[in-house]
């Protein structure tokens, strides 16, 4: 599996610059008090990972990988792990930048707001991943593209509405926020959702013919 993770990360290394520029843009916009686009960054990392499927099918890597030891199983596992790694790293960097921007602008950090935005973003991103990957495994990126647009726009809209209109002030303090029931449900639901998605993708991949 490690080999396949290396492959996916090597394939997207050319996108790291773009991702870096987007993070920079986020910082600049943050300092100028423009719209908060932090929720968008983890989504971008999933979109970048989805691009690896296009390369895989264009060069028929998806068939070639079957010649590797446990190739089918390891490739699906690696795709999920690499994507989760990307989401994790981008989310942590975004979170850190959000704290810095908030402190620089207001000399104080509203942990509740930042963490709740990030939690919503993470949930939305994992939802996209969980829905999209089995569709891509089943139909390929080309046919799944229309689904990607519909779902990404839907989720982005939902998350931005959530971040703009829902008042999270009822959650008192960071610790109580983390211990909040809703948070736990979201985390547990995310784990179950991603695992179920992985199992479905694996099942599709194990039966696939090329």
């Amino acid at each position: 599996m490690i080999g396949f993770i290396k492959k996916d990360l090597a394939m997207i290394k050319s996108n790291f610059k773009t991702l870096g520029l987007l993070l920079l843009l986020y910082v600049v916009m943050g300092f100028f008090g423009e719209m908060d686009v932090s929720f968008f960054l983890p989504f971008i990392s999933v979109m970048i990972m989805i691009s690896t499927f296009t390369y895989d099918s264009y060069n028929k890597w998806d068939a070639y990988l079957v010649s590797f030891p446990d190739g089918r199983r390891n490739s699906v596992k690696a795709k999920y792990v690499a994507t989760l790694l990307m989401i994790l790293v981008v989310s942590l960097v975004t979170l850190l930048l959000s704290f810095i921007i908030a402190y620089a602008n207001n000399k104080t950090i509203n942990y509740e707001q930042i963490l709740s935005t990030m939690l919503g973003t993470l949930f939305g991103t994992l939802l996209v991943l969980s829905v999209m990957y089995p569709i891509i495994y089943k139909f390929g990126v080309e046919k799944a593209r229309i689904w990607i647009f519909l779902i990404v726009f839907g989720v982005v809209l939902a998350v931005s509405l959530l971040a703009s209109y829902i008042d999270f002030s009822f959650v008192g303090g960071v610790l109580s926020f983390i211990n909040n029931y809703i948070v736990l449900v979201l985390i547990l639901f995310s784990i179950v959702m991603v695992y179920a998605s992985y199992r479905i993708s694996l099942r599709i991949e194990l039966k696939k013919e090329f």
Partner: peptide
């Protein structure tokens, strides 16, 4: 394999 290999950006 005929036409099947690593992605060509590698």
């Amino acid at each position: 394999l005929d036409d099947m290999f690593f992605p060509e950006i590698l």
